[in-house]
Amino acid sequence: MPRKYDQLFETVRQNVDEVDVQALKSAIDNGDSKPFVIDVRERDEWEQGHVPGARFIPRGFLEMRIEEQVPEKDQPVYLYCAGGVRSIFAAQALQQLGYENAISISGGFGAWKDAGYPFDIPRQWTPDQRQRYSRHFLIPEVGEHGQGKLLDAKVLMIGAGGLGSPAALYLAAAGVGKLGIVDSDEVDLSNLQRQIVHSTSRVGEPKTESARTFVNDLNPDVEVVGIHERLNASNVLDLVADYDVVVNGADNFATRYLLNDACVILGKPIVDGSIFRFEGQVTVYKPHEGPCYRCMFPEPPPADLAPT
């Protein structure tokens, strides 16, 4: 039987649980686990600010996307819109999908702001960035929030050689915002069999410049800082201090100990890799959470036992 909108709204509202923004705030602050809070507004509304920790699923996509975001249907799911109307219809839709605790926030984001509660303003993406990182946006472990973290991250690469080349390319492709590359060498023809960030036309160039050319062409969002120097005791602390994570691609003992000591002092993680003939190794030295390089090798082996 056809009904007027007002009648429809009242009927739906009677069958939906509603709480106010105060209740939402205390569920976020005091709950044992983080509650699922879904923002069902449109993108332009979301971009002007949203409840911290909320996930963005516009009303039109709610039924299609909710199950990948909230797999367990007995979980409480808080839904909000701008004023508390769209979220009532959204809650009804979730009830029909079997969500037992779909709750609409009365007053919506307007009431949240009026109550003086904090809100996040998401990063603004250019249309190109939205396309470039679209696959990341779809992965729950990354999403727009994670992509923002990647673009804000600063990674220091020691060496643009065999290990540093693929690492730099994938980090740049993924959109790590700043790549510091320390390498004092120039590109040699014999490097090209494995050092894939360089190329035949750039033989003779400093490796830092050659890597910058490739990375800039791959992803203009990435700032490359070329450090055309050898890592040594007088520059290591200042260099490492500016970065969040260090990738070691230099295969010699002196650099490993030097880097280790600097990173233990500064509390920075090292992602270490090494290769010997047909075997490779990877580990992460995270100061005070796991072993450092010296925990495993307190001092270097005698020179005649050390592989080069």
Partner: peptide
């Protein structure tokens, strides 16, 4: 080197 370098990059992304 590609295998190991890409594993390193993966660890970096996880840390970030």
């Amino acid at each position: 080197p590609g295998v190991i370098g890409v594993l390193q990059a993966t660890e970096v992304i996880k840390l970030i």
